[in-house]
Design a protein around this nucleic acid. Structure first.
Lengths: 210, 210
DNA sequence: CCGAAACGGAGGATCTTCGTCCACTAGCAA
DNA sequence: TTGCTAGTGGACGAAGATCCTCCGTTTCGG
């Protein structure tokens, strides 16, 4: 995912590296970016030693996971934009594609620490920007269709994503799932175009959410 | 706030106790119930010793804060119910009265640890139940008025509160504030009664959110 | 089959938080 | 005012958590 190292990795090393990123992705998404490294190693089925050999410190791991994940979401977004008949549908689909989204949001907006780390990294800044451009296009598109209320911008939508995707801890999984679905649906309803009920403030663009 | 102790506290002790609860309230609301005790002591302008003398452990403090805060929210809710012309208005007002609400929600729904502690305590269980009853009345009322969509219940509304009130960390305070306001407004729009767009699942009652 | 690459996890170092203890301060009753 | 006692605060040792290195063992691949 990152630039290939001078010397290609041995097959098993490569495999382990991928497993680590995969494990880190789900674990970060669920518990945030500060879980003990050992948890991640265990989930990946490797020893901490291996983890640290591949990623010299937590920051490096977070960066790698973020790059990996932002790319996925960007792909999802582009795919949705391409396949769905309307911009509105694409937006809704993206919003329901929670899992990947969850992590990107978690890292980029919800965790102070992760945010600081990521904002330095140019590769990630680029991905993030591309993603927001994509989102902006959807928002504009849906507004032109008349389906999305005109007084919001991509920053607003990103913010809602962020708020909604935070799973509530505990609860029974089924209720949690249902409640998330219902909340997303209510929120989508709130986004739909409709006369009246102006929003306070001004539309938040992609620079407002820094 | 709790039953008066055998021997009344000396004036300064009383004052310190109140300061501790006040400090804990804002700090818990902002950073969750696991901040170091010393932070709280510092914010309250007392030493850790004082804190521990008054509240033998973190649990005791959390309980005290929760009782204090649930009562406030309950008062707010009743006041809103009484003063606002419609149930819908009362609901909206309550939702905007974020600060107090924030903490109750934070403690009762967002933090696993706090939740476990609180669910044992009968005083808190009572307050919580009373609050949910109040909320249920508002929900029913607003549904009868035809302003609130009929396919939600008090559990849904509580869930939305919980999701929305989680402040995003960092950002500039003004953008954060504006974005919260906007998100709440969008969500309220989504709650308003309207034909079409049925929600998935079933209405979540107050027992679904355990 | 052998050397290099990779592995895993035990363990020492470091950091965090807890909660106690005690010398000091300040209400309050007489 | 004074003396008694409740109250105070913060230094500090204990307990735990997490980090990350190090090295004996295993696995890859030429």
């Amino acid at each position: 995912m990152s630039a290939d190292p001078q010397v290609p990795l041995r097959a098993d090393a490569r495999r382990n590296r991928d497993q680590i990123i995969a494990a880190a992705r789900t674990i970060f998404a669920e518990f945030g970016p500060e879980v003990p490294m050992e948890e991640i190693a265990r989930a990946a089925g490797v020893g901490v030693g291996t983890l640290y050999r591949r990623f010299p410190d937590r920051e490096a791991l977070i960066r790698a996971v973020a790059v990996d994940n932002f790319s996925r979401v960007l792909d999802d977004a582009r795919e949705a934009a391409e396949q769905e008949p309307t911009a509105w549908c694409a937006l809704v689909r993206l919003l329901h594609q929670s899992v990947e989204l969850h992590l990107s949001v978690q890292l980029a907006m919800l965790s102070k620490k992760a945010h600081e780390i990521l904002k330095e990294d140019p590769a990630i800044a680029t991905l993030r920007e591309e993603l927001l451009v994509e989102l902006e296009a959807m928002v504009r598109g849906a507004q032109n269709e008349g389906t999305l209320r005109p007084d919001v911008a991509e920053g607003d939508v990103a913010m809602l994503f962020a708020l909604l995707l935070r799973q509530l801890e505990s609860r029974s999984p089924e209720v949690a799932r249902m409640s998330t679905e219902r909340s997303i649906a209510i929120m989508i309803d709130g986004l739909q175009a409709r006369p009246g009920t102006p929003l306070p403030g001004r539309p938040l663009g992609r620079h407002d959410i820094n």
